[in-house]
């Protein structure tokens, strides 16, 4: 069974159609790269999956559960929105770390807030918080940030900040982790450390959707690639196939720029 099914998603802002009939599936443990020129709707697609935008048409199904269906009444869509969101994690292009919290606090904050809703929180408060703390530390260690846990975002390089953001997204153990151009805001010499971490996640079969302009990275790390242009999926398929032997003329033209 697919972990994610996206069916016929459409989205427009005013009169401009940004997504048109976007459909794709993802297998558990696979990595999907989305490529395409600027303005083709890649960010909008990720934002729809994370419920930061509401699609006008279509449905989103995770592990067989319909999280979103534009045909259903609004009331039902907004119900449990927070819980539905937790199926997805999001790593933003501009990190969006919380500046007033340390790296570790950034990673553990949401987990701690969610733990408060557990019925046994009052009873086992200490153990639960300790567990969250050590989980957060383990994630930061995995990101190669063992020495930086008590640093505030402004004391970290861009690459380090983005790795904290990845740890923060992983902390809630999402089914699908989304990256929106995770290295685009970084100096070229810092992209490597972030790509390495994402590669590591792919090796552990983390289910991921990565919007990226790093073609060779997409080819090496992703199992599948989607090429988008003007809000439609022009071509999708096996990563190497799409990059090395694109079927569509538009894909070929796009790839010659890289």
């Amino acid at each position: 069974m697919s972990v994610l099914e996206v069916k016929n998603i459409e989205k427009h802002f005013g009169s401009t159609k940004v997504l048109r009939d976007v459909s794709f599936d993802m297998e558990e443990g696979s990595a999907l790269a989305i490529i395409g020129s600027s303005g083709s709707g890649k960010t909008t697609l990720l934002r729809c999956l994370n419920f930061l935008e509401v699609p006008d048409k279509g449905s989103i199904i995770v592990r067989g559960e319909t999280l979103f269906d534009a045909d259903r009444p609004i009331k039902e869509q907004e119900k449990d929105l927070r819980r539905k969101r937790l199926h997805f994690g999001m790593v933003f292009q501009s990190f969006n770390l919380f500046p007033q919290y340390t790296a570790l606090e950034n990673v553990t904050l949401s987990e701690k807030l969610l733990a408060k809703e557990r019925p046994d929180f009052k009873q086992n408060k200490k153990e639960i918080l300790e567990e969250i703390e050590s989980h957060g530390k383990a994630l930061l260690e995995q990101m190669g940030l063992a020495e930086r846990m008590e640093h505030y975002p402004h004391q970290l390089s861009g690459g380090q900040q983005q790795r904290v953001a990845i740890a923060r997204a992983l902390a809630l153990q999402p089914d699908i982790l989304c990256f929106d151009e995770p290295t685009s805001a970084l100096d070229p010499e810092l992209t490597g450390e972030v790509l390495k971490v994402i590669r590591g996640l792919a090796d552990q079969h983390t289910t991921m959707i990565i919007v990226t302009h790093e073609m060779s990275f997409a080819r090496d790390v992703a199992d599948h690639i989607i090429f988008m242009d003007e809000g439609v999926i022009v071509e999708q398929g096996d990563a190497r196939q799409v990059i090395d032997h694109p079927k569509e003329e538009r894909t070929r033209q796009f790839l010659t720029k890289y």
Binding site: R83, L86, N96, L113
Partner: peptide
């Protein structure tokens, strides 16, 4: 306060009031 702060809180499953008090207020 950049909208990205609120959005980061939202995708992390925070409630509106948690986002206000824990994320944006101090900024």
């Amino acid at each position: 306060v950049p909208v990205g702060q609120r959005e980061a809180g939202e995708v992390l499953g925070m409630t509106k009031s948690q986002i206000f008090f824990k994320v944006t207020l101090l900024q």
